[in-house]
Design a protein around this nucleic acid. Sequence first.
DNA 1: ATAAACTTTCATTTTTTTTTGAAAGTTTAA
DNA 2: TTAAACTTTCAAAAAAAAATGAAAGTTTAT
Lengths: 167, 167
Amino acid sequence: MEFKEAKNKFVQTWGALGSQWGINKTMAQIHALLMVSSEPVSMEDIMEELQISRGNASMNLRALMDWGIVYKEYKAGERREFFTAEKDLDELAVKISRERSKREIKPALKVLKEVSSIEANATAEEKHFVEQTTKLYDFVLKADNVLDKITEYKDNWLTKLVIKIMK
Amino acid sequence: MEFKEAKNKFVQTWGALGSQWGINKTMAQIHALLMVSSEPVSMEDIMEELQISRGNASMNLRALMDWGIVYKEYKAGERREFFTAEKDLDELAVKISRERSKREIKPALKVLKEVSSIEANATAEEKHFVEQTTKLYDFVLKADNVLDKITEYKDNWLTKLVIKIMK
DNA sequence: ATAAACTTTCATTTTTTTTTGAAAGTTTAA
DNA sequence: TTAAACTTTCAAAAAAAAATGAAAGTTTAT
């Protein structure tokens, strides 16, 4: 396999993986492209390489920056903007995890708390509902906290976690 | 909030959360419905409660069973099939994690290994590509293994993990 | 202040994903 | 073996999500 082929395969795979995890394909592809680029890349080049429109590139780059995993860079004497991805994988995982927690898990927790707090009247159905949603609330809260703790280790959190688990 | 309202809110929220994580909305809603039902539910009732077609119900129930998180049940003297969800949350999380690893992470790892193994010729770009994809391969492999180890604790793995991390 | 060189926005179009529903298939009881 | 009571399948329709591209907006150099 030659470089161009490998790069393309990587970008396609990363895009497909993104889709399966609720991230739009192009967004994941742009991220993949930036991840393996040693130099900052211009919007023009992203459009060219992924064969996408200007609008699409612009919107997805904005989204990636909102996630905090892609940065704008300015080159001296160049009017154009260039983009780079967060390349430190520990940091990348921490940011994605924080963002998903904030956007998706926290709001879900709020709802779980609400619905598990209803007056459970006589019926077995209602009792079971309250019991099950309460368990779910506790579980999700605990998982969210664990993730938070783990990623707080900062440098090399994954390796540190491996060590903790092993011993 | 009364029971019916709470139940509906829970089902809707679980459905929306599913979408954000790449699981089709109806599939997540059916799962939510079964999670909080104390008794097995017939396909007819699922269709009625979620206002979906027979085909949709059938296909998504099949998918949930393929994931191993919903079971068919037969009631004595009843021709119809009934469905229940895995209600143990530890077990549920383990199954989802195993399944996503098998379906999505493992194939992605295979590609990462492939593309990181190309002959890195002279250019800095190629060198960076190999370096970055190799790091990514190591990271994803390690994360996948950690998840596997954690869920191996079986009963109460999440609580056990909390304890390990805290001390 | 002007205009060139860019980027962003968003109504419209395209693509992808999901849902429908009717026909085909299966199981059970008589 | 027949037929009633179910479930599954899948081509077509509908809905949802993503992409386009041109107009509007912004920035910078002169």
